[in-house]
Amino acid sequence: MTQNERARSVARDRPLEAVKRELGVVLLAGLCLLFLLMILGLPLGRQLFVLLAYSVFATLWLVLRTRRLARGRAQGVRDAP
């Protein structure tokens, strides 16, 4: 077994790797949104509302993805990349 094949088999054994990557993307996008809001100079109340709405959406997305992966794992079905 080559090192590349071993890396693929390890990735298959870790079903939440995709969710971890999505968490990283969500965090970076949130940071970019924060900087954008600071540049735009919106009132503090609006900035907090936009960040709160983004946080709720991102949290729901990650929870639903994790639940779907866990359900698929329990049923023996892997999520397609």
Rank of each mutant, 00 (worst) to 15 (best):
T2S: 15
T2E: 15
Q3H: 09
Q3R: 13
N4P: 06
E5N: 05
R6H: 09
A7M: 12
A7H: 14
R8W: 15
S9D: 08
S9R: 14
V10Y: 11
V10L: 15
V10E: 06
A11F: 06
R12Y: 14
R12E: 07
D13P: 03
D13E: 04
R14G: 09
P15A: 02
P15G: 06
L16K: 05
L16V: 03
E17F: 15
A18H: 08
K20N: 08
K20T: 13
K20H: 11
R21W: 07
L23A: 13
V25R: 15
L27V: 14
L31W: 05
C32F: 09
C32T: 10
L33K: 05
L36A: 06
L37G: 01
L37E: 00
L37A: 01
M38Y: 09
M38G: 04
M38D: 01
I39A: 11
I39K: 11
G41A: 04
P43I: 00
P43G: 02
P43R: 09
P43D: 00
G45E: 00
G45K: 09
R46Y: 05
R46V: 10
R46W: 03
F49W: 14
V50Y: 11
L51C: 00
L52R: 09
A53D: 02
Y54T: 00
S55Y: 12
V56Y: 12
F57Y: 09
A58F: 09
L60P: 02
L60K: 13
L60A: 03
W61A: 02
L62V: 06
L62N: 02
V63M: 13
V63H: 10
R65Q: 12
R65P: 03
T66V: 06
R67D: 00
R68T: 05
R68H: 07
R68E: 02
L69E: 07
A70S: 04
A70P: 07
G72V: 00
G72E: 00
G72P: 02
A74P: 05
A74R: 08
A74H: 05
A74Q: 06
Q75G: 11
G76W: 01
G76R: 01
G76C: 01
V77C: 05
V77H: 09
D79R: 10
D79N: 08
A80N: 08
P81Q: 10
